[in-house]
């Protein structure tokens, strides 16, 4: 278990990183970006990933925008090198506090201290908390490539099993969460604390007083990529009382019925469906209790 050999290149700013990616690719190399490396390195150690060159964004931590967490115009922007733990310990506006609360589910402290928000999104694991949160809060990924910057909305980001719309020659610069959700929660189930979730669920409720007027339901672990569940969101859109158990049950049932989860001997589709029902219901109840004062 040792990574295959690669050449190593430090990028000193975003343009430098894009230039390195472009030049290395042109030279026939298969370059890849490393930031926190907490997902990439295990894959390299098992030689499941074997880039011939790594472009290290580490020096870009000195670029303030890359590690900045800032709110402007009702959106929350995270620099690409913001770590999970930086979000966990940040004081965020109520509309985005769910981001900080969700971080306790991301691995363990040593992973959270190095892993980055952008890295997690580009990795595109179907159960990754950031992937669910991106769909929940309408994230926009800002990526810079040889042709300049472009914005990728979350609903165009995930292309299936560990595949995203970010191109190999692009560098994510920042992630902008555009939809505040003060009444939101993410919860998940794994057999062991800190593991990748079997299923995870994120819910955002639109509330008018105690009345639900709509919302988002996002699931991980039930499809090759994280998904919104329109059938469950339709139940929320039909409205109801936020404290109504029947409404919660209806949303959870709608979600569990709508999905077509993977089936394997250890974790059957039936079990994933039941977890979905439980987790969506829990997330609804927790979301209704937020923001806590």
């Amino acid at each position: 278990m040792k990574p295959a050999a690669f050449t190593y290149h430090r990028a000193h700013d975003v343009a430098d990183a894009v230039g390195l990616l472009t030049d290395l690719a042109a030279a026939g190399e298969d370059p890849k970006i490393i930031a926190g490396g907490q997902s990439l390195m295990p894959m390299m150690t098992f030689r499941l990933a074997r880039p011939s060159a790594l472009v290290d964004l580490g020096p870009l931590r000195r670029v303030p925008a890359m590690t900045a967490i800032r709110e402007e115009a009702g959106a929350l922007t995270l620099g690409a090198l913001v770590t999970h733990h930086a979000v966990e310990t940040a004081t965020l506006p109520a509309g985005f506090a769910v981001l900080a609360r969700a971080m306790r589910w991301v691995g363990h402290l040593p992973i959270r201290s190095r892993g980055t928000v952008a890295g997690s999104l580009v990795h595109g694991d179907a159960t990754a908390e950031w992937c669910l949160l991106a769909l929940l809060l309408d994230a926009v990924v800002v990526a810079e490539g040889p042709g300049g910057r472009r914005e990728i909305p979350a609903d165009e980001l995930f292309h299936g099993f560990y595949a995203t719309a970010v191109e190999p020659d692009e560098v994510v610069v920042e992630v902008r969460f555009t939809r505040p959700a003060p009444h939101a929660a993410l919860t998940e189930f794994a057999r062991r604390h800190g593991d990748f979730a079997i299923v995870d669920a994120a819910v955002a409720l639109d509330l008018d007083g105690d009345r639900v007027t709509g919302g988002r339901v996002v699931l991980g672990g039930v499809a090759p990529a994280p998904v919104r569940v329109p059938e469950a969101e339709a139940v929320l859109a039909a409205g109801g009382d936020a404290g109504d158990d029947a409404l919660v049950a209806a949303v959870a049932d709608a979600a569990a019925t709508a999905i077509d989860p993977p089936d394997d001997p250890q974790t059957t589709a039936t079990y994933r469906r039941r977890l979905t029902r439980t987790l969506v219901a829990d997330a609804c109840r927790q979301a209704a209790r937020e923001p806590q004062r």
């Binding site: 295990p42 098992f46 057999r191 062991r192 604390h193 800190g194 593991d195 990748f196």
Partner: peptide
Amino acid sequence: ASFIDYLVPTATE
């Protein structure tokens, strides 16, 4: 073949 699949319990289990 890894500790992702072989579930050694931790302090919370």
